[in-house]
């Protein structure tokens, strides 16, 4: 496994996609959540943007930031990790490197597991840093707002982010089946759009790609309260089974 991991770490760490996704995952949550709420409460907010920022104008600063963080982290985890895994798997077809991975002593199942492990470890590190930076930024802007309740909400946001990252790993399956990263990129866009629609019609609790985001507060405190453990277990189970299917698909792919 160490051989397969070494190759994936080497390629992933040198990829532009990974670098851009790192910026998205680490910088976007603190900038968006703290920045948007701070902007909503500044005197500069005027015109059409003021209307959009209105929901963030009132209420305890820390709680509003933590709620918005749940929304932002859920989305960037799915999209950022999705694009990273789509690239790391789909590039083998796009760059025509997949042929050299056949008939090796290191099996393709090991190579696929190494790919997903590298993305999972990178995603966990990025999301941990993102939530830590959000808390730190909040403390710097308004230290009194970082209460125990806000810290607990940020911990929930972190967990939801990890779940959304796990749910992004199965885009590897789409990359294998579509023999490249474009199909997987399309699937990410499609799942994100479909999730928005299903959430609006109230079906979110039992849709794996929505439940963790709602639990993190993306739909407001009432919808977060409606998400029970069963919904989250279903989401994690879906991620586990679909990730297993991705490894299997990579290991069994042919180049006909």
């Amino acid at each position: 496994m160490s051989t397969a991991l070494a190759l994936q770490v080497a390629t992933f760490s040198r990829s532009l996609t990974a670098r851009l996704a790192t910026v998205l995952l680490v910088a976007f949550p603190p900038l968006m959540s703290v920045g948007m709420v701070a902007l909503a409460r500044s005197a500069d907010a005027a015109g059409p943007s003021a209307a959009k920022l209105a929901p963030y104008r009132d209420g305890p600063f820390g709680e509003i930031v933590a709620g918005l963080a749940g929304q932002v982290v859920s989305v960037v985890a799915l999209i950022g990790v999705g694009f990273a895994v789509a690239w790391l798997v789909g590039r083998e077809w796009a760059d025509r490197t997949v042929g050299s991975l056949f008939a090796l002593p290191v099996g393709r199942a090991q190579i696929a597991r190494a790919k997903l492990l590298v993305v999972a470890a990178w995603a966990a590190a990025c999301l941990t840093l993102a939530v830590a930076l959000t808390a730190a930024t909040l403390a710097v802007v308004d230290s009194a707002s970082l209460t125990g309740a806000v810290a607990a909400q940020l911990a929930r946001v972190w967990l939801a982010g990890l779940m959304m990252a796990a749910l992004a790993l199965p885009f590897a399956w789409v990359a294998v089946v579509s023999k490249g990263y474009l199909g997987a990129a399309g699937a990410i866009v499609g799942v994100t759009a479909a999730s928005q629609i299903l959430a609006m019609v109230g079906a979110g609790a039992w849709v794996p790609y929505i439940a963790p985001a709602m639990w993190a507060g993306a739909g407001g405190p009432e919808e977060a309260a409606a998400i029970g453990p069963a919904s989250l277990v279903l989401a994690v189970a879906f991620a586990a089974v679909a990730t297993w299917a991705s490894v299997r698909a990579f290991a069994r792919a042919r180049l006909d």
Binding site: A10, T11, R14, S15, D95, T97, G99, S100, A103, L255
Partner: peptide, 14 residues
């Protein structure tokens, strides 16, 4: 076993 078929081994970023 060693082989070169279709496209030789070589990751562009390495």
């Amino acid at each position: 076993l060693g082989f070169v078929i279709d496209q030789p081994f070589g990751y562009p970023e390495l």
